[in-house]
Design a protein around this nucleic acid. Sequence first.
DNA 1: CAGTGGTCTAGACCACGCT
DNA 2: GCGTGGTCTAGACCACTGT
Lengths: 261, 261
Amino acid sequence: MNSVLPSEAPTASLAAQPAATPSFRPLYQQIRDLILRSLQQGEWKPAEVIPSEMELAARFGVSQGTVRKAIDELAAGHLLVRRQGRGTFVATHAEQQVQYRFLRLMPDVDQADAEQPAQREIVECKRARATADVARALALKTGESIIQARRVLSFGGIPTIVEDLWLPGEPFRGLTAHRLSAYPGSLYAFFESEFGVRMVRADEKIRAVLPDVQQAALLQIPVSTPLLSVERIAFTYGNRPMELRKGLYRTDSRHYHNRLS
Amino acid sequence: MNSVLPSEAPTASLAAQPAATPSFRPLYQQIRDLILRSLQQGEWKPAEVIPSEMELAARFGVSQGTVRKAIDELAAGHLLVRRQGRGTFVATHAEQQVQYRFLRLMPDVDQADAEQPAQREIVECKRARATADVARALALKTGESIIQARRVLSFGGIPTIVEDLWLPGEPFRGLTAHRLSAYPGSLYAFFESEFGVRMVRADEKIRAVLPDVQQAALLQIPVSTPLLSVERIAFTYGNRPMELRKGLYRTDSRHYHNRLS
DNA sequence: CAGTGGTCTAGACCACGCT
DNA sequence: GCGTGGTCTAGACCACTGT
């Protein structure tokens, strides 16, 4: 039997599979998707506990082991975090552990003592209309309302990153330079707590480039300094693109770190 | 009970844990490490099948489920590959699927039709002595014997990558420019089939740089062209570093792709 | 001590690949 | 049809966290 009996799944119905098996879909994946939908719909908010495995098993009418495997996959994708003895929690960007989960620029020499956090300066933040490029990246239509921002990150007083951001206007309605500057945590923690938009995954395209005059000025470097260009699209639940970000990184005393396996 | 009874593990003994639990180590991790050791010692060679889950369960005196969880972890780390209905195989770099598993330089426009493979040209290949830097990266002593090579990769006739390689002399004894040039597959497939050295993981440090005169000449570009510098250390089983590679990538029509999650 | 996730087992059945 | 990995279950027990 490849589907949950409706009578045993009072709060959620799974699409029944025909007895013949033209397309087989494991139960635990169906459960995973149901949990995912609950996350998406905000049934449990970031940093909250979700129901225990036994509760979920009862709710979906499956065994604990099946729920466990569903949660395993979500935890592997950093959507959930398991804490033994306490419960399973909705993952959040606001955790102390990793300040910048998606920033891979590391100091060349690992100063053992805690590195002081980056200083952030908002250079610009305005409402605008999506160009064709931006619209394509954010799955919008050309001309739709967006928010555009530029900021500079400095480490130990040295301007190191200049970033341009493009955000869809609708979900981020009410975002202002002032609120951006005032927020103490990372941008993604800001999006999460202020707009309920949780970034789950990102794709980056990395190149070596030279800055234009303005970028060079912001980083206080000559225009002949090669920089890392990092173009990122960040996605929420359901692979919906919610941020386009183009960063320029100085790499003379830091490097972009990547592990291949 | 946290350890396998010796009587039930005839071909391998697991370290018994004291009844008090000062340090608890799950059984499946112990099994995983035993399988890992067998891989390391070459009991099963790349692309070969390993024994079935039931056989391994009998051999280690545990249930199939425990072996399964051990294999799951190794498969997640790309050390093993499961194929339903056929068995579990030792992973290899020689698979057709992904030509270059560790090369993340992608064409900007995805030509749907198969891209023709890169052309490879060995520029240099010589025996030498490890400098302090190289020795540190490869966990050797300064002055130990190494092999040094330089090659150029071209895509569609355009020289795109120039790479310098440093390899420990001992495991790669007998490597020559001729054998390098003659081998049809990727470098890592070559290391695997010709020297039994299987790379399992790699760390990369990425920067933006300008080429020196010689590098610019090899890539047929001006010295003012910013390039991606990719410094990679590749590891075999047991986190032993076995290759240092410094690559320069042209990124005007290709980009380094990375997925963050 | 109760409740949570984590481990381990044994057994049944399913999907897949080969012969 | 057989053997492989893949799914699902039910139950026991362990390790960890809070009260």
